[in-house]
Design a protein around this nucleic acid. Structure first.
Lengths: 227, 227
DNA sequence: TTTGCAGTTAACAATTTGATAATACAAAAC
DNA sequence: GTTTTGTATTATCAAATTGTTAACTGCAAA
């Protein structure tokens, strides 16, 4: 989701190649990782593959339009936290209200200067990132996501990187059950493909090192953290 | 600040009484609690007193202008999480970028229809609140779809995956009778083909674990949830 | 080169869950 | 009162999922 230190990923969907290119250039310049799609269906496919943090959607596109895409995405729990911005030439009030009520986070009308767009994107991320960065403290357990240090009752616990990221992810939302897919996406990313046992083994290592019964298996679903 | 279930508080600062009134009316209509300020200094005072969740700031105001106000607020930890929207007639690119970089969460240029403004405000809160759409509560029974936990009168009840999904489905619309076909489609999907008795058995398991007479059989039709 | 560690996979055991069949039961229809 | 239809219950077996150990790979430090 928002693993600190990770480059934020943005998917842009627009049927005009020029616009696609301009936006892509400006966002990459700002340090974001960018993927593009030329129509609604492509956007859906890319969203699944690329697992972006933010999707910028044109509304009028061949195939599925932006609002349809947004609707479809919002129905899937995996894209619940994904930011969505509509970027469109349609400036009528009805469409804008509808777009926002569909679950989008912002609605920007073309034409818009690249600088302004980048600023809006930054503003959106700034707000979200605040919530899950820094150090976590759950009972006697302290997880410092910046220093990569875990401490339990005063003593440090050495975790390997994947182990740490796994723990940090789960502990970030105590009680929430993370599906195996979610874990794979967040910790391993969408590029690498690893087997299911990999998660188990890392879970086991974390449990062993923490020597603390805090990671619960929810059979058929995933894992959760609870102290 | 963002305690769920609380009415959200919004502070509007603008030197034009008409605008102030129109916005106030529309936001109150939407269920928000609203306070107003006529200039920059008043905005700062009200912010401290009223402790709003969102501040809508005009930029050009007597005394301190909106950007100054935003800067001052952002320096105080107490207002770190407060949402800030600039609402202004200044539509030049430089000001907008500057405004957003000051730490505002959105920048809306006048004129804007009240409906659109309300939609944007809603969208902003929706993202921040992290609405508890995941949890159902029916009487003493709590079903947390995110945490995969069922609680009845404070005690947890462990359900297997299918059992959980079955209960979550039925409890999602209390009173509605779900046909056996509906249940099969929702819980088992269209790919797998299972017999009719399978539903009965799972219903029975849920009833047994809940030890609560909440799933009613509608003979020849299906099942419904009712507490 | 050797050693050690992180990350991954393989193989198998242990456990949980899901599905079915057989039977029992209840209510409506005849 | 018997038959029919539909549901509940139980036991049982099959399938899926996870835990655990051990081994393999690549890399970097000693």
């Amino acid at each position: 989701m928002n693993v600190p230190g990770t480059v934020k990923k943005i998917l842009i969907a627009d049927d005009e190649p020029d616009i696609l290119e301009i936006i892509q250039y400006n966002l990459q310049n700002e340090g974001y990782e960018v993927a593009t799609a030329k129509n609604g269906n492509e956007a859906l496919d890319e969203a699944k593959r690329f697992n972006p943090d933010l999707i910028i959607l044109d509304i009028m596109m061949p195939g599925k339009n932006g609002i349809e895409v947004c609707n479809i995405l919002r129905l899937q729990p995996a894209f619940n936290d994904t930011l969505i911005i509509f970027l469109t030439a349609l400036s009528d009030e009805g469409t804008e209200v509808k777009g926002l009520e569909t679950g989008a986070d912002d609605y920007i009308t073309k034409p818009v200067s690249p600088k302004v767009l980048v600023s809006k994107v930054n503003a959106l991320f700034r707000r979200i990132i605040k919530e899950d960065t820094g150090t976590l403290q759950i009972g006697d357990l302290i997880i410092d996501r910046e220093k990569y240090i875990v401490t339990y009752q005063g003593t440090d616990i050495i975790l390997a990187r994947k182990e740490f990221e796994l723990l940090a992810l789960l502990a970030g939302k105590p009680g929430k059950v993370f599906l195996r897919n979610e874990i794979l996406n967040q910790v391993w990313g969408t590029e690498v493909i690893v087997g299911d046992r990999t998660i188990d083994v890392h879970i086991r290592k974390v449990r062993q090192k923490l020597n603390l019964d805090c990671i619960t298996t929810v059979k058929g679903v995933g894992y959760k953290f609870d102290l």
